[in-house]
Amino acid sequence: MNAIDLNAYRNELAREILSTDDMEALQSVYRAYQRAVNKINGYDRGEISKEEDKYPMQCSEGATPYLSQVELDADIEAAINDENAKETEVKRFYERWSS
């Protein structure tokens, strides 16, 4: 299966899941998905023990943020200033050409 077919299948599956309103059906889909992932990862054949790879679906990096709150606030402030500067530039351009 090539990448285009795989992405199309993912999108179709996601649409079907998102349109489902039945909680039992969603829980059943989730359990079936977990069984399929475990089968692919080799848990059902005993190739990988659960102790060797306890959490295969979780992120391995820490939960520390990449930026501190001060850095985030500075980035937001810079973006606001850039946007205000662009608006001012557009106003000047419009005023120059409209008179």
Rank of each mutant, 00 (worst) to 15 (best):
K91F: 07
L72Y: 04
A3Q: 12
E51C: 05
K86C: 05
T64A: 11
L26S: 13
P65K: 00
P56R: 04
D21T: 09
K54Q: 05
A74D: 06
R31C: 11
T64M: 10
E95Y: 10
R96N: 02
R45S: 09
K54F: 06
S28G: 07
G62T: 12
D21V: 03
G42R: 01
A25V: 15
W97K: 13
W97R: 14
A8S: 07
N84R: 08
Y43A: 01
I76Q: 08
N2T: 03
S60M: 13
A36N: 06
L13W: 10
D22L: 06
I17H: 06
I17E: 08
E12Q: 15
W97P: 04
I4W: 02
T20M: 13
S28K: 06
N7F: 15
D21Y: 00
N41P: 03
V37H: 07
E16L: 14
D73Y: 11
V90W: 03
R35N: 04
S98F: 04
K86I: 12
E77L: 03
V70S: 14
E12M: 11
K86G: 03
A74S: 03
E12N: 10
I17C: 14
K91G: 00
R31D: 07
I80D: 01
C59D: 12
W97G: 06
T88D: 02
R10D: 09
R92D: 01
I4P: 08
E77H: 10
N41E: 11
V37D: 07
E47A: 10
A14N: 09
A85C: 01
N84V: 09
S60E: 09
M23D: 14
Y55G: 00
R45G: 04
A3T: 12
Y94F: 07
K54H: 07
A78D: 08
Y55I: 04
I80G: 00
Y94P: 00
L6A: 14
T88G: 02
E16F: 13
M1K: 05
G46R: 00
A78P: 06
A79N: 08
A14S: 11
Y94A: 06
S28Y: 05
Y33E: 05
S99Q: 09
L67S: 04
A8D: 14
D75I: 08
Q58P: 00
V37G: 07
D82F: 01
Q69G: 02
A74F: 03
T64C: 08
L72S: 05
Y43Q: 01
S19H: 09
L26E: 04
D21G: 15
A32Y: 02
C59A: 12
A63E: 10
S98M: 08
W97H: 15
Y55V: 13
N2F: 03
D73Q: 13
G62K: 02
N38C: 04
T20I: 15
A85M: 06
G62D: 15
P56W: 03
R31H: 11
K86R: 04
E87Y: 10
M23T: 15
P65I: 01
E95W: 05
